[in-house]
Computed example of a mutant assay.
Amino acid sequence: MLKTIKPRALVMVILGSTILSFGLFNIHSFSGVTEGGGLGLTLLLDHWFHLSPAITGFIFNMLCYAAGWKILGREFIFYSIVASVGFSASYSLFEAIGPFWPHIGDTPLLAAVVGAIFVGVGCGLCVRAGGAPGGDDAMAMSIAKVFKMKIQWAYLASDLVVLVLSLSYIPLSRIGFSLLTVILSGQLIGIVQEFHLPAWMHQEKPAKVE
């Protein structure tokens, strides 16, 4: 049972997951730019081995969360659950509202840059609070802690492996835009995570959870 939670961290996780879902629905789902990490891996397995992303994605996420629980602790799981629920709820809301830029796929360079901003800021806020909205984020956080490296390089390493493998069925030009968006989003996650808040914003008493 968790002894304490931080209200500011909860707000940060919910805000981050909402920003992330907005970007994934309005940018990535309409741009045709592929992903690295877990999503790209499930698409790769589906193409070559006809394994449903619904199954492989679930297995991948559960393995990453289990590793995160062992390496990062129980609070990580608590904030990750909040992030996952927040992401699903806000994504459903944005689906009901409808797309803001349905033709953004016509300009893939713009989609890659703008999509990276939403993903970078959204995931960065969740990671800063100590949670992971997806298996990719849990894996990157675990890698960063185990190897004592900055999280943006952990994201980049996992994304590059998947993108290189994806060249087996995706044209190089399309992979180029994907590479741009994962590099930018990974760097933004690191910047948001390490951004120093003013001292007065750290003065917060944790709320108890019985």
Rank of each mutant, 00 (worst) to 15 (best):
V164L: 15
G190W: 03
E35G: 12
G186F: 14
P102V: 03
Q152W: 11
L179C: 09
I27W: 08
K6W: 08
G120E: 06
S31H: 07
I104V: 15
L188A: 07
L44N: 04
F60M: 06
S88G: 14
L184I: 15
F60V: 10
G105V: 14
P53N: 07
M62A: 01
I117V: 05
V11G: 14
I77Y: 00
V209T: 11
D159L: 15
G135K: 01
L109T: 12
P108Y: 13
L197R: 04
S142G: 10
N61V: 09
V164S: 14
I175Y: 00
I59G: 01
V146C: 04
G16V: 11
I97R: 05
L20S: 02
F25M: 06
K70Y: 09
V209D: 10
C123D: 03
K70C: 02
K70Q: 07
T42S: 11
V127C: 14
P171R: 09
A132S: 12
F87W: 08
C64I: 05
H47M: 07
I191C: 08
T18K: 14
I27K: 09
W48F: 15
V113T: 07
Y169S: 13
T34W: 10
S17D: 02
A89P: 00
F100D: 09
K205I: 13
Q152Y: 11
G16E: 09
G38Y: 10
I189E: 00
A89C: 04
W153M: 14
L167V: 08
V146R: 06
F118E: 01
L172I: 13
V192F: 02
